[in-house]
Design a protein around this nucleic acid. Structure first.
Lengths: 168, 168
DNA sequence: AAGCGCACTGCATATTTATACAATTGATTT
DNA sequence: AAATCAATTGTATAAATATGCAGTGCGCTT
């Protein structure tokens, strides 16, 4: 269902169609404005893919495209995803996440910049937030960097020491 | 058309309805899974907003929401949105987003840390950026935290007061 | 107060999107 | 080779979303 490739049985070469079409769709969606499936269908036809609206609808599903004010768009990779679940308290202790993800801490005035392994910033920041330390005014996490804002330079230093100890 | 507020003529107090509803929608969309307008309609009704699907459809337009694989989503501020032109001032006023997402503001020197509901940071930061306030040097948004850099401690205090007032 | 203009909304309906079902095709098994 | 199976797609239609039009109500002007 997913790839259409040789994965399971059946189809192995006609692939030249569906996957190609998906790529074409990604390209079209990324570079041109497409406000509905008929429009996308027409553009696909111009590129040699003769399909119906039903197929286009299915493709859009498989590609996880979004539809917004200005037409279809690619999945943002970032924020949109994890709106759902989340659950509750199951967070690992800071020292655990730090031990696995933490790399180093740098200080700039009242701010700390915590470098983590790739993809580790969010979980680390979450864990830190949960500690409710008074040295932490707030955190901001990207992919591998966490910015920690402290009330002042002094508390930043203190926190830095603590974090470094945890990183080991 | 945009605000429904006192902007032009007419309506100034019934606003208690449409804008409130918009906030409720932002909140619902950010915190729960909503896969179609009927569902959103039902949830709105449970919150006391008795509207039809048509109105919900219009609201979704005005709020620039996206619809993706997992239901409706807020404009990501980031990747998804403005690939396209952008048109005019389509962003909701700060006080609107703040009312729905803002939780509290903390100050550290010349920085403000604005805590928002989960998923609210991007839209809030976007709105703030758009205001072009001289107290704002720049913003950084994660998932539920916005860092606002101000020129100095004094302007930070001033801005803090203003934001707190908006949060209510 | 009468008249006008505009925001807002419901109703009915047009437009757009999703999907149940059946047909086709090529690989795999017996 | 016949039977079988999974993948893919079209057709027809259901489901979801958008919108033209008309009605209502408030504020402003006259």
């Amino acid at each position: 269902m997913q790839d259409g490739g040789a994965r399971h049985t059946g189809r192995v070469f006609s692939v030249l169609s569906k996957t190609e079409r998906h790529n074409a769709i990604r390209d079209l969606v990324a570079t041109t404005a497409i406000s509905n499936q008929e429009e996308l269908r027409r553009k696909l036809i111009r590129r040699g893919f003769d399909v119906t609206q039903a197929t286009v609808s299915r493709d859009i599903h498989e590609l996880h495209l979004y539809k917004g004010p200005s037409g279809y768009a690619l999945p943002s990779g970032n924020g949109n995803g994890h709106l759902r679940e989340e659950e509750d308290s199951g967070l690992p202790a800071v020292h655990e996440v730090l031990r696995s993800f933490g790399l180093k801490v740098k200080q700039a005035q009242n701010q700390l910049v915590l470098i983590t392994a790739s993809g580790g910033a969010q979980p680390v920041a979450l864990a830190i937030d949960h500690e409710d330390w008074k040295e932490v005014v707030g955190t901001l996490a990207g992919d591998d960097t966490v910015l920690i804002i402290c009330p002042d330079q002094k508390s930043a230093s203190k926190l830095k020491a603590r974090l470094e100890e945890m990183i080991g």
